[in-house]
């Protein structure tokens, strides 16, 4: 039986042009196209590229087109979804990673191909990524790596470093014979024996943030108060979670100069909230900010505060809250924010 492959590429590799056509919408055609023709040859007769899906780089970097792209992918009935190679192209790499991630999340086998330094690499979710070269000149060897990976992924076999796998590898809970405490004792004996490398937990890698430009004049700026300290109206009317928050909320500050004890409280589950509940300004400093606003040190305070609970919140959700807060605040003309964190 032939394995049905759907291949995602960008508008450039689909032959539609470069930056001038970076805004073309999602589309697809039957069969292989561009680098897909060579990929089909490498895959041989057991595989068929049944459709090629593409999109302009400008669109593909936005999450809103993902549903359209996935619908095109799904319509072709793939056994395997293959994206790239994207080399070091940022927007293309992001799209390749997100399409592969979305397919994998639906239970479709998927693999993406890009250079390890491609900024999109961390967006591949649970889909594996194999390394391409840095530039399109290295298409040949990149496709060979990808074709070998497609064969393995289609067969349900794991991909490892030997297959050119790069990027994040999902960590899964497994049950082992020895307790964690017994393993800790074995590890301490290994350390005493001189092993400085052994560990069950790899050191985390955090992404780098380019700082924003400063505001030129705070005395005319619109400034927002935001917090992960889970301060909400006393009844917690919107049921903010005390741990592992999946959402954030907004509460009006219009006409308010203070946040009285008894009217507001923290539902954060990560620390004792006795102090926060005695005086909610210990979490959201509205009293001081209003005073500074009245004195002209702040142009104007934003009319609401944004809040979530930062307790065991996954980095993925926290990143999403940040993106959503930024978008929300920018729409409303906010120029700077004070974020209190517990």
């Amino acid at each position: 039986m032939t394995t049905r492959v759907v291949h995602y590429i960008n508008q450039f590799f689909a032959g539609l042009g470069g930056e001038d056509t970076a805004t073309v919408p999602p589309a697809s055609k039957a069969g292989a196209a561009g680098p897909g023709r060579k990929l089909a040859q490498l895959l041989g007769d057991d595989f068929e590229i049944v459709a090629t899906v593409w999109c302009g780089d400008d669109h593909a970097a936005g999450p809103e087109v993902m549903d359209d792209l996935l619908a095109l992918v799904r319509a072709a009935g793939p056994d395997v979804v293959v994206t790239g190679p994207a080399f070091t192209s940022g927007r293309y790499g992001l799209a390749c990673a997100r399409v592969a991630a979305a397919a994998a999340a639906e239970g479709i086998a998927a693999v993406a191909c890009m250079h390890p330094d491609n900024p999109g690499i961390d967006e591949a979710g649970t889909a594996p990524v194999v390394a391409s070269g840095e530039v399109a000149r290295q298409m040949g060897p990149s496709l060979e790596t990808l074709a070998a990976a497609v064969r393995k992924v289609a067969a349900g076999e794991p991909l490892g470093a030997d297959d050119g796998r790069v990027g994040k590898i999902p960590r899964r809970n497994v049950t082992v014979d020895r307790t964690s405490a017994e393993r800790a004792v074995a590890l301490v004996l290994a350390r005493l024996g001189g092993d400085r490398e052994a560990t069950e937990v790899p050191l985390p890698r955090f992404d780098q943030v380019t700082p924003a430009q400063p505001v030129t004049d705070v005395t005319t700026a619109l400034v927002a108060l935001v917090t992960e300290g889970a301060l909400v109206p006393d009844a917690n009317p919107d049921s903010l979670e005390s741990a592992r928050a999946t959402r954030w909320l907004r509460y009006s500050l219009d006409g308010r100069d203070v946040l009285p004890a008894g009217e507001f409280r923290s539902v954060h589950g990560g620390f004792s909230t006795v102090w926060a509940n005695e005086d909610p300004h210990r979490i959201v400093p509205l009293d001081a900010a209003r005073q500074l606003e009245a004195e002209g040190a702040i142009g104007k305070l934003h009319g609401e505060y944004l809040v979530t609970a930062g307790n065991g919140t996954s980095v993925g959700n926290a990143r999403r809250f940040g993106v959503e807060w930024a978008a929300d605040l920018r729409r409303q003309g906010v120029q700077a924010a004070l974020l209190t964190a517990t």
Binding site: N173, D177, T179, R183
Partner: peptide
């Protein structure tokens, strides 16, 4: 996820 190490769970890299 017993911090004192009662459990048998750990994490491994998936395929």
């Amino acid at each position: 996820l017993s911090p004192l190490g009662w459990g048998h769970l750990t994490c491994q890299e998936a395929s």
